[in-house]
């Protein structure tokens, strides 16, 4: 009998990988550093997911329960991997709880870290209570409290969603597009308009990237059915006149400076590399991408392979990723991880 697969990170990708491994009768050890499974959608309290429209607690919650009810999966919460040595088929990992795990291979599904808006101080986060992040608005919606201004709990009449906060920003070293924020923001704008029909919602963008099939259901729908306004403008700063937030910028379509009052400003925050990636890189001996995410070995050969044989990666650990694609990558990585653990040769596509 070959050794179990070590899966690091219990978010959507890790949960999918664990289930995939178990589904063909193979054992796995699922290690999660937080006290609950579910990753960002659960820990950060996301509301309705794109594109299913299901609440995160139901959609991802189902994935958690499926894993929790599976005897093939050895689950470890509040745990991290301290050391990881060996070769494919014969790895040994030492966990923070002192246990020693023998593993045939490993899958890193360690995800991302939300961009911290404090790193973009000119946009007012941390200075003004009514400047919030998409994550906070997700929590307002998912908790049932509704979208309110944190300063005095009033219903906002005018909401601005600023796209590309911590994405596509060379000034602060975030050169990547976080891929999902446009669609998430369009979806959020519709949710706000649904809850507060009198509220005007503006989305400030440099480009809209509601890629693939999201175009119709989010970009167009938000404009045609929910009358969300998209303004092509770069925001210079978010300040306050003491009563309302003042958004200053340049409207690049009409070529003029704009100064607009808002009640609530939402930062559509991007995906940073997981803050633990330097540690993960050292522990697992995997190379990082120059942007700080975990590097893939190649694109077309072995799905999810890293620079170290027998260690695979899936989901937002590789770079900004959607939940559904994270799950697909996790399934692919699971297949390759089992092959590596059972001594089968993974052939490069050369």
């Amino acid at each position: 009998m070959s050794k179990p697969i070590l899966i690091v990170g219990g978010g959507p990708a890790g949960l999918a990988a664990a289930h995939a491994v178990a589904s063909i009768g193979h054992r796995s050890v699922l290690v999660e550093k937080a006290e609950i499974f579910g990753g960002a959608p659960i820990q950060s309290g996301y509301a309705k997911l794109v594109p299913s429209g299901l609440w995160a607690k139901d959609a991802i919650g189902g994935m958690v329960r499926r894993v929790e009810n599976n005897s093939q999966i050895d689950r470890k919460l509040n745990t991290v991997v301290k050391t990881f040595d060996g070769t494919p088929g014969n790895f040994v990992a030492e966990l923070s709880d002192g246990t020693r795990v023998e593993a045939g291979s490993a899958i890193l599904t360690t995800g991302f870290t939300h961009f911290d808006s404090v790193n973009k101080p000119e946009w007012g986060f941390g200075l003004f209570p009514d400047v919030v992040t998409t994550t906070q608005v997700e929590q307002m919606i998912s908790s049932g409290k509704g979208v309110r201004c944190p300063s005095d709990n009033r219903k906002p009449k005018r909401v601005a969603i600023l796209l590309c906060v911590g994405s596509r920003d060379r000034q602060i070293g975030r050169e990547w597009c976080s891929k999902i924020c446009c669609t998430v923001s369009a979806n959020m704008a519709m949710e706000i308009r649904e809850e507060l029909p009198e509220t005007h919602v503006y989305i400030y963008y440099m480009d809209i990237r509601t890629f693939g099939l999201y175009e119709t259901d989010y970009y167009w729908k938000s404009q045609e059915e929910f009358k969300v306004k998209y303004i092509k403008a770069r925001i210079a700063e978010v300040t306050s006149d003491g009563k309302q937030l003042i958004v200053k910028g340049e409207d690049t379509l009409v070529k003029r400076p704009i100064t607009i009052p808002f009640d609530l400003v939402v930062h559509a925050i991007g995906m940073d590399p997981n803050v633990d990636n330097m540690t993960l890189s050292a522990v697992f001996g995997v190379d990082l991408h120059k942007q700080g995410f975990i590097a893939r070995k190649d694109t077309y050969g072995v799905m999810g392979a890293t620079s170290r044989d027998g260690v695979f990666v899936a989901g937002a650990a590789i770079g900004p990723e959607t939940i559904d694609d994270s799950i697909a990558q996790a399934n692919a990585a699971a297949l390759n991880a089992i092959a590596a653990a059972t001594g089968n040769n993974l052939q490069a596509a050369e």
Binding site: R158, R256, I258, T259, I260
Partner: peptide, 9 residues
């Protein structure tokens, strides 16, 4: 200044 700060929503 060309700044616009009055809007008719």
């Amino acid at each position: 200044s060309r700044v616009i700060s009055d809007y008719n929503e």
